[in-house]
Amino acid sequence: MQNESIKKIKEIAYPIVDQGDTFLVDVEIKHHKVPEVWVLVDSESNNVSLDTYSALSKKIGDVLDREDIFPNQYRLNVSSPGLSRPLSDKRQYAKNKGRTAKVKFREDDQYYKLEGVIEQVDEDKISLKTNENGVKDISFDSIVETKIVPKI
């Protein structure tokens, strides 16, 4: 049931969010007494403004209400994915060029972890500059998880 709801919400949110340079990263439903729907949105070039989140929330909420996905109450949250969440869309890599990232990837049936600066982002790979190995090209197909390391 939850997977079907998530799929339906993604179908609703995608055309609303994917306008201009914003894009849909993910949808989550956290079940409490009142379900919480999280629609995670990012931008290719800028930070998303509160006004944009508010407008997207209103549009998505209107369609969710019309489609009657939740028969009772629900809470809708439209926000950024946040730094603790792994990158999940190729478009997020270009935005984070020049930032330090921890990348877990698969190569020759083994898993590796590297930390370095995202130096280049191409159609099919990233270039990660590390202290130990110089520059390492990692294909998107081999990436298991990438997390941005916050600067303190």
Rank of each mutant, 00 (worst) to 15 (best):
P81K: 02
P81V: 02
T52W: 05
S80D: 02
R75A: 09
Y112P: 11
F70N: 01
L56M: 12
Y111I: 15
A55E: 15
R85Y: 04
W38M: 10
A101P: 12
Y93E: 07
R75D: 12
D109A: 13
L76Y: 00
F105R: 01
S80K: 02
R66Y: 06
T52A: 09
Y93W: 11
K59R: 15
R106H: 11
V37H: 05
V48Y: 11
G98W: 05
L40K: 14
R99I: 03
K90L: 10
Y93A: 05
D68G: 02
I60V: 03
L76R: 09
G61L: 06
D108R: 14
D42A: 03
A55R: 12
R106L: 15
N47E: 13
P86M: 08
N72F: 06
Y53V: 02
L50P: 08
N46P: 01
R106V: 14
S79P: 08
Q73L: 07
A94M: 06
F105S: 01
D65I: 07
Y111E: 15
Y111G: 13
S57Q: 12
L50N: 08
S43Q: 13
V78Y: 03
F70C: 04
G82P: 01
V48T: 10
V37F: 09
I69R: 03
V37C: 04
K95S: 03
Q110K: 15
E107N: 14
V63L: 05
K95C: 00
S54P: 08
D51W: 02
D89I: 11
D108A: 14
E44L: 02
L50W: 13
E107S: 14
S80A: 05
S57H: 11
S54L: 11
K104P: 04
S49E: 11
K90S: 07
K58F: 10
Y93T: 13
Q92I: 00
